[in-house]
Design a protein around this nucleic acid. Structure first.
Length: 416
RNA sequence: CGGGGUGUAGCGCAGCUGGCUAGCGCACCUGCUUUGGGAGCAGGGGGUCGGAGGUUCGAAUCCUCUCACCCCGACCA
């Protein structure tokens, strides 16, 4: 991508609406803009990051045997009346009517729709287990949207739903998802903890949150210093001792980016979603549901990884892997070399942003730092006279001068 | 919803105890000079002061209502 053709409106100053770091930096780096409270436009670089997270999630879901589908955002009241949640969730449901006066809502979650979908179609125990998922925009009319993408009203979420024959089978599906979640957040380059949690409003009796560790996190966690036990402080055992190994618990702060629940038959019973079991009897599906906030994951990554200059994106989430900074775009030789390198990177399918703007060096360096692009390749007239190009790693801060003849090899190595 | 706060140019702000033509920094446009970490000088464009109503000879400024946004609380991915 050529910078001058791209749309990256960076800001020198922080809009006063932003209070937390991730929100400030996403606005400043031109990733998002607010349309209304809790409702955001993803600009090109923001969308790139969003798509990177989505793709990682998609790959791991598929690997775990889940099947992707896409459900509607607009949902009829009738489904919500079946579970009683039309009234129960009135607070967060954005309800409205169509031209005929029928009631609808924008989907804040999809238990009703998915259960409705399968109840006519998964008929036999032989059809089970099944896990279905989607990556889709949710709308929750939050009481108080805040902190940019951390808590929006409209947000992109991956939601998966498992259907099993027995409770024991559901625990297996649940475990598969738990492992998939660990892979997802590891691949995102994040420090996180799976945390024993309260199951909240969705219902069910077993749940884990996936918390990205950050001092600015809203959730307080108790993590064992000896074993892998970690729980939300909301789960009060009243003790400061690990229930698994009696080790000491330390308090950490986290941002909830994922949550998995065992639902049981809560929805399947109410919605009469039955399958025929081996004994020829109708039984309600045993269900689980599994969410990941895609946008929130990006915000959490920024909370966890930034410095005074801007974002320090893990490579997996960065909008671009490489920024190629041409310091002397008016100089023919420099531009020829830069163009050659740009084409080389494009050919090798590396996400590269080629900064060929007629701007001063400081502006280019600062924009690259602000956006958090992991690898900076800087070439200018001065360096080329000595046959040198410099490479800088935004994450480690290290930089080196590389011989012109080795530059391609060196770049590919640096990206590993 | 309860409590607190803010709305003046694209962004950040000053002006607000009633008075001239509404200002500053950044950004933007033109020209010259600069050019390896957010350049300098000179010139220039951009505002129904969130909206409505009121008080007054006169309102960004005072009063009433309203809307939007932000922060603290309950909620959540």
């Amino acid at each position: 991508m050529r910078y001058s053709q791209y749309y990256i409106p960076t800001l020198k100053e922080v809009p006063k609406e932003a209070e937390v770091m991730s929100h400030k930096l996403m606005l400043r780096s031109g990733m998002i803009r607010k349309l209304s409270s809790g409702v955001f436009t993803y600009l090109p670089t923001g969308l790139r990051s969003l798509n990177k997270v989505s793709q990682i999630v998609r790959e791991e879901m598929n690997r775990a045997g889940a099947c992707e589908l896409l459900m509607p955002m607009v949902q009829p009241r009738s489904l919500w009346d079946e579970t009683g949640r039309w009234e129960q969730m009135k607070g967060v449901l954005l309800q409205f009517q169509d031209r005929k006066g029928s009631d609808f809502c924008l989907g804040p979650t999809h238990e009703e729709v998915i259960t409705d979908l399968v109840r006519g179609e998964l008929r036999s125990y032989k059809d089970l287990p099944k896990t279905l998922y989607q990556i889709q925009t949710k709308y929750r009319d939050e009481i108080r949207p805040r902190f940019g993408l951390m808590r929006g009203r409209e947000f992109l979420m991956k939601d998966a739903y498992s259907f099993d024959r027995t409770k024991e089978d559901t625990f297996k599906s649940y475990e598969v998802m738990r492992e998939a979640y660990k892979k997802i957040f590891s691949r995102c380059g994040l420090q996180f903890r799976p945390v024993l949690a309260d199951s909240g409003d969705i219902g069910g009796s077993l749940s884990h949150e996936f918390q990205v560790l950050a001092h600015t996190g809203e959730d307080r966690l108790l993590s064992c210093t000896k074993c892998d036990y970690c729980c939300n402080v909301e789960v009060h055992n009243g003790k400061n001792q690990c229930p698994q190994c009696r080790g000491e618990l330390e308090e950490l702060r986290g941002i909830e980016v994922g949550h998995i629940f065992y639902l049981g038959t809560k929805y399947s019973e109410k919605m009469k979603a039955f399958f025929i079991d081996e004994d020829n009897k109708e039984k309600p599906f045993e269900m689980g549901c599994y969410g990941i906030g895609i946008g929130r994951t990006i915000a959490a990554a920024i909370e966890q990884n930034h410095d005074e200059k801007g974002i320090k994106f893990p490579k997996a989430l960065a909008p671009f892997e490489v920024v190629l900074i041409n310091l002397d775009p008016e100089d023919v030789k420099t531009s020829e070399k830069a163009e050659e390198l740009y084409q080389y990177l494009v050919k090798h399918k590396i996400d590269v942003l080629y900064d060929e703007r007629k701007e001063r060096p400081g502006i280019k360096f600062n924009d690259a730092d602000l956006m958090g692009i992991p690898l900076h390749i800087v070439l200018g007239k001065r360096g080329l006279q000595n046959q040198k190009i410099s490479i800088k790693n935004r994450f480690t801060g290290g930089s080196s001068e590389v011989e012109l003849s080795h530059i391609e090899k060196k770049i590919l190595e640096s990206l590993k």
